[in-house]
Amino acid sequence: MFLDRNHMFHAIAMYISMTTAIFLIFAYAPTDKMQGIVQKIFYFHVSSAITMFFAFFVVFVASIMYLWKSSDWWDAVALSAAEIGVVFCTLVLITGPIWGRPIWGTWWSWDPTLTLTLVLWLIYVAYLMLRIDAHDPKRARFAAILGVVGFVDVPLIRWSVEKWRTLHPKPVLIQEGGTTGIESSAMLLTFVVCLGAFLLLFFYLLWERTSIAQSRHSLEVLRQEIDDLLTR
């Protein structure tokens, strides 16, 4: 199952931290006074969101490195980070409304952060589609360009949705600032552990996915060589 010892240690560390995070969330952190049990989703929601931004940042850096060095490894990293980023982005978009429904009184509000996440989801899904759809030799280069363009767009989207948002009604029940509600140090500790677990999960998945992409690439190369030998 594990290719080597490092993978195993990484997997075990991730397993332990994730279990600890879940334990802390449900057994250790106090229940929020105003929001009740619903607030517990905050730990996963915000951790997913931060991991998502981090993943897209990795796509950005790996894309620049690919354009600069044109090494296949950087391309594999960018692809892996984008896939994982989209997964976490989807998680944010699912947990957000679950949290918003009882707190804001509505499944969806065009809150700047939520809107930004939705637009990011659209951009990076397009990124993955471009990777599938583009012709082979230039595929990685196009993806890298979109990886850079997409991330550069983030502050602009953020700025524009914030301007736009001021024209729309605010969420009903509780003001936006109040919903993050870290009230005690126990909550903060739980959050930090949870975020750590998510980032560890991200690195674990990134590592595994990148090595799969690498193996697939070497397989392609070998297959090509065999083809060449046979046709000779």
């Binding site: 659209l122 589609m129 471009l130 759809d133 979109l146 997409g150 767009d153 989207i157 524009s160």
Partner: peptide, 15 residues
Amino acid sequence: MLPMLFLPVSVPLTI
């Protein structure tokens, strides 16, 4: 692919 790439990236401009 063109609208898929073009429309989301142009969101800030559109708004």
